[in-house]
Computed example of a mutant assay.
Amino acid sequence: MAEDLNIVAPEGDRRTSTPGDVPEQLRRRYFTEARGGRGLGFYAGARSEAAAFRDHGGRLTTDRNDPHVVRDLLAIAQHRGWNAISVRGHTEFRREVWLRAQAAGLEVRGYRPTERDRQQVDPDRSRSGSRQHSPLDAQTRLRIVEGVVKSRIVEPAEQQRILAAARTRLATWLERGASLTPARAKSRDHQRG
């Protein structure tokens, strides 16, 4: 079973934290109990049989590849002041940790990002190298939707169904003359003009 675990631990910093030392919003979101294995289990519901993740103080473990659990594990790492983390486990788990950690400013060891991973974090990198904060065009929005769907939906037929619906919806919006410029950008542009 240990080889099936996904693990997030502080890199280089071997001091332990008290299990259960988590941000307040996570304390309110989960039920905790020490049953079912080592460490403190965090359960999504009062009747949940399996812990979403377990807190061992010096490391966090889960048997899931769930992006919501990854988000919460990284919130705990930041809460505990872990600036660099080591990650082990399933490739998709390690990838999700790396992607989310980039936005959080955490260094990750244990996953070698692909060029596509780097482009997902910084889409402008593959184009001009400059960082522009322009509104997302339709193709960029569709690529984001595709990335999310493919990372979270396992069944290929279900992926295709969802993506076809997204493409149809986007095409309908564009045909009706919808603007993809966020309201904040429109308001800013209107104030300048």
Rank of each mutant, 00 (worst) to 15 (best):
E115Q: 11
Q160L: 10
A157I: 08
S151V: 02
S151W: 05
G105S: 08
A138K: 08
R112G: 09
K150S: 09
R116Y: 02
R116M: 09
Q119K: 07
P123K: 07
S134V: 11
W98A: 02
G110L: 08
E107Y: 05
P156D: 08
R141S: 01
G147N: 12
A103T: 12
P123Q: 08
S130K: 01
S151T: 14
G129R: 06
I162K: 04
S151I: 00
D122Y: 10
S126P: 00
G105M: 03
I153L: 11
R112P: 06
Q132I: 07
T140S: 11
S151F: 02
V149T: 10
V154C: 02
R143A: 11
R116L: 13
T114H: 13
Y111P: 01
E155W: 03
G147E: 04
R131H: 09
E115G: 07
R131V: 12
V121L: 04
Y111N: 01
Y111A: 02
R112D: 08
V148R: 07
G105C: 12
I162E: 04
Q120D: 02
R118H: 00
R116V: 14
K150A: 07
L163C: 07
E146I: 05
S126G: 11
R109I: 10
P113Q: 08
P156E: 14
Q132T: 12
R143W: 08
K150I: 03
E107S: 13
V145C: 11
G110A: 06
L136I: 05
R118F: 00
V149W: 06
A103C: 01
G129S: 05
P156A: 13
V108P: 01
I162L: 15
L136R: 06
P123S: 12
V121H: 05
E146V: 03
